[in-house]
Amino acid sequence: MKKIAIIDADLVGRKRHRFPNLVCMKLSAFEKEKGNDIELKMDYKDLNQYEKVYLAKVFLDTPVPEEVLSLPNLTYGGTGFFYDKAPPLPYEIEHHMPDYHLYDDWISQEIMKGKTKKEFNEYINSSIGYLTRGCFRHCPFCVNKNYNQVERHSPLSEFLDPKRKVISLLDDNFFGHPDWKEMLLELRATGKSFKFKQGLDERLLNDEMCELLFSSKYAGDFTFAFDNIQDARVIERKIVLARKYTDRPLKFYCFCGFDRAGKWDREFWNRDIFELLYRIEILMKFHCLPYVMRFARYEESPWRGVYISIARWCNQPNFFKKMTLREFAKLNGEQSACYRYLDEFEKAHPAAGYFYDLRYGG
């Protein structure tokens, strides 16, 4: 029996992390099946005592001590290290049923410290996996930009735990696969709630997709993406189509701070703020919720604080639904950084005032 440590770097290195690492769970199951002793390691101390250490991370900005990466007993990987060039797992690991109990002891310890069971819902109640992988959009900022099509990846049975209430799907562009209907009907037939954590491609929706999707037992908000102002008209048309089938909340990831021309100059930063506000206006009009996601280089913007303020407003639906951006800034106080950032941008660009006073559902 080998003594093996598994480190979920995002869990160790981030303040909040509410979703388990699928690779870590598959590695754990694979090694346990071989009779090895597995420990979910919560720090980087004394790693030389293990015969093998697996380290995985999803996010690029999750810190990992540099000296750890040179350890002879370490194997590391994931998009957090290699982004779009992450090497695939060996087939027998990639297609192994995950070890859904890898995090159990850690969860118990966290609850004993005062956290609630609800905070670990994804760890406790979800079956997690991919029915499909890949995309054909070639978005330059996306981890899937090197794919040319959507491919079948795993059968549902490969990761479905009958005891778990929810199916959490990590598919990149589910409706981009020609067999979407067959797979969606299989999901519905389980009788379980399911959700697409990465969102769905609104631009692909048709009547049949809408009828089946919106009548399903879906967990949480339906989530899509509105990343490019050039898609405004098609997004509006598809929201109108969706509204024929559901009144439930539609949430849209709104990516910003990425210059497709690669310049990141002042002209871009000014335009990008306005394009973000315009996308928010469109979503407001149709009673949809934006969720602002910022590319890391927004930190370089002269309007960094404006990005932060807009994201804080949008990403808290209780505020977004009840008050305008200007009212949100005033709620923070006229001496606050939020108010100052927005005020400075409006003084430089008076046209921004129109967007500041827009109201959800107004």
Rank of each mutant, 00 (worst) to 15 (best):
E122D: 15
I282G: 05
M209S: 00
E66Y: 01
K118V: 14
Y50P: 01
D161H: 08
D357F: 02
R326L: 12
T132R: 11
S216Y: 02
A296L: 13
E208Y: 08
F268S: 11
E211T: 06
P87Y: 13
T62S: 06
R152D: 10
F328D: 04
Y147S: 10
G353E: 12
M112Y: 13
L212M: 12
A311D: 05
L170F: 15
F274T: 03
F175Q: 01
L11F: 11
G176F: 02
E236A: 14
P88K: 09
F268Q: 11
P302A: 01
F286I: 02
S154E: 15
L170T: 09
G114Y: 03
G191V: 00
F82L: 06
M209A: 02
C338Y: 13
K52V: 01
I282Y: 11
A219Y: 15
K195M: 11
W264E: 13
I273C: 03
A86L: 07
F274E: 07
Q230E: 15
T62H: 03
K26D: 03
K195A: 04
I7C: 03
N206H: 11
R237W: 04
R18K: 08
G262N: 07
L342K: 07
H287Y: 13
Y83K: 12
S157C: 02
C254A: 09
Y218K: 04
P72F: 08
P350N: 05
T246W: 00
M97R: 12
C24N: 06
L250E: 03
H153F: 14
K244R: 14
V23C: 09
G176H: 05
I124V: 07
N73L: 08
M209I: 14
Q49N: 11
F295G: 06
K244L: 01
C254I: 02
P178K: 10
N228D: 13
Y341I: 00
A9C: 08
F258S: 02
D201T: 00
V53N: 07
M293Y: 10
V166P: 01
G262Q: 01
P88F: 10
D105V: 14
E94G: 12
M284P: 04
N125S: 15
N125A: 13
A232I: 14
L342Q: 02
R237D: 08
Y278G: 04
C139S: 07
L250T: 00
A242T: 09
S301P: 05
L156S: 03
M183S: 08
N228Y: 10
R260K: 14
L205H: 01
C139W: 11
V58M: 13
V23A: 14
S108G: 14
R279E: 04
F214S: 03
H101R: 13
G176A: 08
A352I: 00
V150G: 03
L71R: 10
E186Y: 07
R164V: 10
K34A: 13
M112F: 14
R266I: 12
I282T: 10
L160W: 05
F59V: 00
L11P: 05
F174A: 07
E327M: 12
A9R: 01
K15R: 13
F174D: 03
R294P: 00
N228Q: 12
R233K: 13
P63R: 12
I282Q: 07
Y218D: 03
L169V: 09
E299F: 08
Y298E: 05
R271Q: 15
K192M: 06
V12Y: 01
L277Q: 04
I167C: 02
F319P: 00
M25E: 15
